[in-house]
Design a protein around this nucleic acid. Sequence first.
DNA 1: AAAACGTGGCA
DNA 2: TTGCCAAGTTT
Length: 308
Amino acid sequence: MKHDNLHQLLDTWFAAHARDLPWRSPDCTPWGIMVSEFMLQQTPVARVLPLWQEWLQRWPRPADLAAEPSGEAVRSWGRLGYPRRALRLHAAAAAIVSEHDGEVPDSFDELLRLPGAGNYTAAAIASFAFGKRETVVDTNIRRVQARAIRGRALPEPALTAAESELARDLLPSDPAAAVRWNASTMELGALVCTAKAPKCGQCPLLGSCRWVAEGRPEPHYQPKGQSWHGTDRQVRGALMAVLRVSDVPVPSGVLLDPAAEHPAAGAGTALRKLHSLQADASQLERALNGLLQDRLAEQTADGVQLPG
DNA sequence: AAAACGTGGCA
DNA sequence: TTGCCAAGTTT
């Protein structure tokens, strides 16, 4: 196979430098791996670690999570970010109970049907939990391949057909070798071939990297930043922070009115933070309606709360 | 198919 | 301090 040398180089490097992550332990269950994959979506390993431990201790099997109201999942998600992932993981657990007899399915197609599992997550679970030969394509793998093979500084802004085709071509035909390739390429992207300030001096592919060979050309586009300050997202986040820590339903008036008295129990600090954003009434309402529509929160006679 | 979706660490 | 960026998915 073309690029066979890369596989060998990465295998050797991975054996020596892979992080000892709990979801890579031989006795980690498919469910443990699945939880890690959901938590790791757009989220660094360091922030996932403690929460993953908590979740697996509390909900060691899909059925354990499925038995709880979705609001418990959202509350336990804490400040990990993108709380709808908690909702989807909860829904996925319910689907596993109702459609797969409580066992995480082992095929890409079945995994892909679970809420919150897209192409990356379905392939990752099939590969890492079940040893299947699946092409895993995440941002790390795309960046490593963009540099080493295509000679680019960065992967394309969105996954292209060419990138997918390259990733498929590079995947070893032996399933066990494919799993190692997936894991080691991802790890290289996370630890060495990073987005900014890559540590090329430590890279096992230094001698075969096309980007390095071509003098490390600049990116051919300007990555556009993610806005945050003053956005609806920021207000949603602040709203969620209030609901997560409140012991009781929070009257929508208290949420929407900066001058409201009687903050909800335990939510004082989060409420002050929300109001300090000085969002206008329409933005607050839009953000709250979004949460209700997404079922991240629900409205009762007593106020707004996490789904119970 | 572009845009929305959280959060915190680091330079 | 501001902006970048992180194991993506959904509509």
